[in-house]
């Protein structure tokens, strides 16, 4: 917005080193990873280790994100967002100051990429993982807010869905800080933008719809009907469609409620698979048995003919 000053992007080049103003740590830029709503993220080398560095000319926004990362770090036993490694300012040789923070570099594939390769059976797993993490987040008093495909990565060994951008994370009861229209229930006319667990559950469903509709779709005259139809149209999420629809219209007050129903569906699916599997195995023995019974019956019949 300020035309006279240059943005950070025009200063940072691969191979360049920068040192923080307050903590004096040194980072070497490797390459740019992407642009966010505020600032850009670079892959950098921090003392021999790879890390992600987010820098912006909006200092206050960086500070707010750091606050979120710090409080997420306090959620026990879960690594919800990336670990925060450092917060500092960088003063350019020209004297301009940019705020930045350094966090764990999470490497992985996007959700649609992963699903294309590894198939549908992961839907249930990811649903459960996300609901698990959301439950922990909600219990510590926060709502993710800007939950979307772009803010998630699938890491390997172990395969896990990680959150890479927590900039929209908002305290429960406040107004959602950052959102993306397609994933926002306010945009679809299905609720407010107040930070409550059900806000995230709506976005969660939209994440899975985004996997199957990468170009998204229009609201139409009846947004709820549009969404329900889109859910119905995808065979892969069919087993979960009732749960997903309930989440869309805000029927679940907590992630736990949704998780219980999803896990019931998964259990049911497993059972059905198990039963049908058994049936397939049993088929040959059934045949042998029934042939055996027939032979015995025939024997009795013949013997009854011979011995009157």
């Amino acid at each position: 917005m300020n035309k006279t000053s240059k943005t950070h992007d025009s200063y940072l080049r691969p191979g360049m080193s920068m040192t923080g103003k307050w903590h004096h740590k040194r980072y070497t830029i490797i390459r740019k990873l992407g642009n966010g709503a505020i600032g850009s993220v670079y892959l950098c080398d921090a003392g021999g280790k790879k890390a992600a560095l987010k820098i912006s000319d909006k200092g206050s926004s960086i500070t707010m994100e750091v606050n979120v990362l710090k409080s997420l770090g306090k959620v026990q036993g879960k690594s919800l967002g990336p670990y925060l490694l450092d917060v500092d300012d960088w003063v350019t040789p020209q004297g301009q100051t940019f705020s930045f923070y350094v966090m764990e570099y999470i490497q992985g594939r996007t959700l649609p990429e992963f699903m294309k390769q590894h198939g549908q059976e992961w839907i249930g797993v990811f649903l459960m993982q996300l609901l698990d993490d959301l439950e922990a987040l909600h219990q510590s008093g926060w709502v993710f807010g800007d939950l979307k495909v772009d803010n998630l990565l699938v890491t390997s060994a172990p395969t896990r869905l990680r959150w890479i951008d927590v900039g929209g994370t908002t305290q429960i009861g406040r107004a959602i800080k950052e959102y993306t229209e397609f994933y926002d229930r306010g945009y679809w006319g299905l609720g407010s933008r107040k930070a409550e667990p059900s806000y995230d559950l709506f976005a969660l469903v939209m994440v899975f719809l985004s996997v199957y509709y990468p170009n998204h779709f229009q609201k139409g005259s009846n947004p709820q009907a549009t969404l329900f139809k889109k859910v119905n149209d995808i065979k892969a999420i069919h087993p979960y469609s009732q749960c997903l629809k309930k989440a869309l219209i805000g029927k679940y007050r907590t992630s736990k409620e949704m998780k219980q129903e999803i896990s019931a569906v998964i259990y049911d699916l497993q059972q059905r698979k198990l039963v049908s599997g058994k049936r397939k195995q049993q088929n040959p023995s059934y045949a042998v048995e029934s042939v055996g019974f027939l032979l015995i019956a025939l024997g009795y019949y013949l013997s009854s003919l011979i011995i009157p």
């Binding site: 307050w22 200092g59 206050s60 500070t63 606050n67 917060v87 705020s99 406040r174």
Partner: peptide
Amino acid sequence: TIEDLDPEKRGEIMEVVEDLGE
């Protein structure tokens, strides 16, 4: 100004600003 404070103090002050905004 806020920018002249070290990042930790700045964080605390931004929390106040955010509170007020809400």
